[in-house]
Every structure is written in C-alpha cells, then in structure tokens.
Amino acid sequence: MNDETKTPAHYAASTLSEALPFIQRYDRQTVVIKYGGHAMVDEALSEAFARDVVLLKHLGVNPVIVHGGGPQIASLLERLGIKSEFRDGLRVTDDATMEVVEMVLSGPINKSIVRAINKAGGKAVGLSGSDADLMKVRRASRTKKDPDSQVEQLIDLGFVGEPERVDVSVLKLLTDYDYDFIPVIAPVGFDGEGKRYNVNADTAAGAIASALGASRLLLLTDVAGVLDKDKQLIREIRADDLDGLIADGTVSGGMIPKLETATNAVKNGVGGAVILDGRAKHALLMELFTEHGAGTIVL
C-alpha cells in the first residue's frame, strides 16, 4: 500500500505504532508540567492541553501540573485599582497584592484547569503549595549594584518566596494508581510563620519536579524553545553549557531564569527539562512521544 492509497485511519495507526517505544519509556514515570503563557488563555489550546493531559494519564504517565497566572493577576489588580510597585523591574508583592495573587491563582485559574481536565475525562484535584505542607518557602530577595558606590544593595520584593522545602507525600498519594488523580498546583507557598508567599511558577515546578525525581520537567512558554544566534532551535543543551551560552549572548532576557530552573532541576535528579512552545497544539505529546521532541531539552 503506497501513501496515496492510505486512509486517515492508516496514518493514525502508524503514528500510534511509532509512538510505542516512547509510551513504554514513560510508563509509570512522573512528568511535571509548568502550564502558562498563551496556552492558558487561548480556549482551543486550553481544551487541547486538558485532553492531552488526560491521554498521558491513560497511557501510564503521572502528570503533575503547576500553573502560572501573571496576566490574570495583573488584570484583576487593575480592575481593583491596586497599583503595582516595581523595583529594578521586578513587581513588589505587598499585602493587598498578595491577597489578589492567592485569590486568582488558587481560585478561578486553578479551578478552571481542574474543570477542563475533568471535562476531558480525567480526575484532577486542585491544590496550592500551602496544602499538606507541600511547599515551604523563604522570603526571596534580589540585589543590585549601586552604579556610584558599586556596593550591592538589597531589593525587598515583599511577599515573593523561593522554595526551601517540598513535601511531595500528598502528590505521591494522589498519583498512586489506586486513585489516578491529576494534581493541579497553584504556586503559593508559606514560611515557617505561616505567612503566604507568591512563587514564580517555573521555579515552583522545578522544585516539585526535583522532589518527585521526575522523569521530565516540561516548561510551556511562548517561544519555540532556545534559539541560536541564527534563530534556529537548539534541540539539546548540557546543563554545564549554560554559563557559556549566557556569556556569548545566545541566551538572554527572560530565557535565562527558565534555563536556570531547567539546569537546577536536572542537577537535582530530574531526568531532563524541556522548554517547549505552548502555542503549538499537542506540544506535550510531540515532546514525549516522538523521536525529535518539540523543544529544547536540558540534560
């Protein structure tokens, strides 16, 4: 039978057959997915993402989702008339802002993802980093060098946290095959005094993936992956190469913290971290179940 006589059913069967080795590779493996960007706000992409996550579960994968929500938070802050303060380009999270952050992340965003997955046939459960001692954090701080004195100055970002300890016992219970739940996690953590903090979703996903010993960390973003100086996709990066890529200008801007998260996760036991284009439909399936993947993998 030549290609001209093949039906759509033949192509579908062929694709499934070719995917078999990759399905076997990820059987009973945990994959942590950072969900954000355009994929979250585009209705068609959101529905496709939910279906793909349910498919992963049925194929034997344990998906764990950590989501962001920056645009939705900014929108509600504007509607409520709460002005954001920025220090050295970074948003300061004060009490009023933190109230909105937790409301949006743990409320409508988290539950909309849960509903979409359940509608697609899965069993999703919404959590935040505050539930079951999942994510204990420390107050984050940044420094910048004063241009005149060259002295490092501390930048107080308010209630912005960095993961200090991750207890994944509740995630292991939920993803056990006796229950088959899909955790959906809002990146809100707490410190030793019980104060709540906003955590960058990439950072939270990396910390959770490391604590779970995940086979893969998938960071959905709004670009195809890491591009070289000729704007061509770099398929693979070794963790030790990051400093050189930053130094020669290949990696810059917002891609730097994403790659830092990816390399830290790999160095802490994650099998591989992938930066991939969340705007591409079925990006998760292409990355996990095809030979060349769909983004840039850090190993």
Rank of each mutant, 00 (worst) to 15 (best):
1 M>W: 11
2 N>R: 06
3 D>C: 06
8 P>S: 08
10 H>K: 07
12 A>R: 14
13 A>C: 09
14 S>Y: 10
16 L>D: 09
17 S>M: 11
23 I>R: 10
24 Q>N: 13
24 Q>C: 11
27 D>I: 08
29 Q>N: 06
30 T>N: 09
34 K>V: 01
40 M>L: 13
42 D>K: 01
46 S>Y: 10
48 A>R: 13
49 F>W: 02
51 R>G: 11
52 D>S: 09
52 D>F: 11
64 V>L: 05
66 V>K: 03
70 G>R: 01
75 S>A: 15
75 S>E: 14
78 E>I: 06
80 L>V: 09
81 G>C: 09
81 G>E: 06
81 G>V: 05
82 I>G: 06
82 I>F: 07
82 I>R: 10
83 K>Y: 05
84 S>E: 14
87 R>N: 11
87 R>W: 09
88 D>P: 00
88 D>A: 11
90 L>P: 00
93 T>R: 06
93 T>Q: 04
95 D>Y: 11
95 D>E: 14
97 T>A: 12
97 T>D: 03
101 V>R: 03
103 M>T: 04
104 V>S: 01
105 L>A: 06
105 L>H: 04
105 L>M: 04
112 S>K: 15
113 I>A: 05
115 R>V: 05
118 N>S: 03
118 N>Y: 03
121 G>C: 10
122 G>L: 02
122 G>D: 04
127 L>I: 11
128 S>C: 12
133 D>C: 08
133 D>W: 08
134 L>I: 05
139 R>Q: 15
140 A>V: 01
140 A>C: 03
140 A>N: 00
146 D>F: 10
151 V>Q: 14
157 L>T: 08
162 E>F: 10
164 E>S: 14
167 D>M: 04
172 K>I: 09
174 L>C: 04
176 D>I: 12
177 Y>F: 14
177 Y>R: 15
179 Y>F: 14
180 D>H: 13
182 I>M: 07
183 P>Y: 01
188 V>F: 05
191 D>R: 09
193 E>K: 15
193 E>N: 15
196 R>T: 12
197 Y>W: 04
207 A>K: 00
209 A>F: 06
210 S>P: 01
214 A>F: 05
214 A>W: 04
218 L>N: 02
219 L>N: 00
220 L>M: 14
223 V>I: 15
224 A>C: 05
225 G>N: 10
228 D>Y: 09
235 R>I: 07
236 E>A: 12
237 I>V: 08
237 I>K: 01
238 R>W: 06
242 L>M: 07
245 L>W: 07
249 G>R: 11
250 T>P: 03
252 S>R: 11
252 S>L: 08
252 S>D: 10
253 G>K: 09
254 G>Q: 05
254 G>R: 10
255 M>Y: 09
257 P>V: 07
257 P>H: 09
261 T>E: 02
264 N>D: 14
268 N>I: 06
271 G>D: 00
271 G>S: 08
274 V>F: 05
278 G>M: 00
281 K>F: 04
282 H>I: 12
291 E>H: 15
293 G>Y: 02
293 G>A: 00
296 T>Q: 02
299 L>Y: 13
